[in-house]
Design a binder for these strands. Sequence first.
DNA 1: AGGCGGATGTTCT
DNA 2: GAACATCCGCCTA
Length: 207
Amino acid sequence: MNVWPYQDKSFTTEEIAQKLLGCLLVRESPEGLCGGYIVETEAYLGVKDQAAHVYGGRRTPRLEAFYREGGIFYIYTLHTHLCLNVITQSETQPEGILIRALEPAIGLDIMAQRRHKTGKLLTNGPGKLTQALGVDKAQDYGSSVGESPLRIDFLKRKVPKLVGKAPRIGIPNKGEWTSKNLRYFVEGNPYVSDAKGAKDSSRDWII
DNA sequence: AGGCGGATGTTCT
DNA sequence: GAACATCCGCCTA
C-alpha cells in the first residue's frame, strides 16, 4: 500500500524534501494517466521561516492544509498558475515542500495537449507542472498524497546520483532565509527549473 | 480598495 | 539568454 512514509515525524522537512527527489508524481483524470519524476523541491520551515506563507503563525482560510496532518497537498494560486506543495509535519508544526519540477514519464501526449508545449517546457517549473498534470485546486487541495487522483508513488522511484542544494527561488528580502540552501534538485537533470545548459542528462540518476 | 506575490511566455539582442 | 509585460486571488487596510 502506498501511504505517506513520514507519518512518525522522525524526519525533518529538509530531509523529506531530498527524499522526494526521484519519486513519481502521478495524476489520474478523464483524459488519462500522466506523471513524472520529481527533480526539484524547496523546503519551507514553518512559522520561523520568513519565506513561508505561515511565517509568524499566520493562519487564514487558504493556509488550512498547513494546520492539518502531514502527507496532504497544499495548493495555492499564483496569478494564473497553481503551485503544488506537500505538507510534511503536524497540526502544530506547519511545514511543507514546494514541488518545482518533474521529469515527464507517463502520458506525455496528454501533458503536451494541456501545455501546448513539448520537451523541457512541459514540466520544468512549478506552474508548468501543475498545468501539465491538470491539477485542480478544488479537487486536489488537502487530498492525501498516498491515495488520491493526484498522488506520489514512493516505491517506484529513481535514485538521484547527486543532490544539488541552492537558495530558494524568488524570495529576496527574507533575511537569513533568503540565502539558506533549502532548494534541492537532481544535479544535471535538464528539467530542473533553472537548468541552463541541460547537456549532461546522462549522469543524473543511479537507477 | 489596494497591494502583494513570483512564474510564464514573448520579444529582443 | 536577458528583459519585461502580464497574469488575478487572497489579505490587510
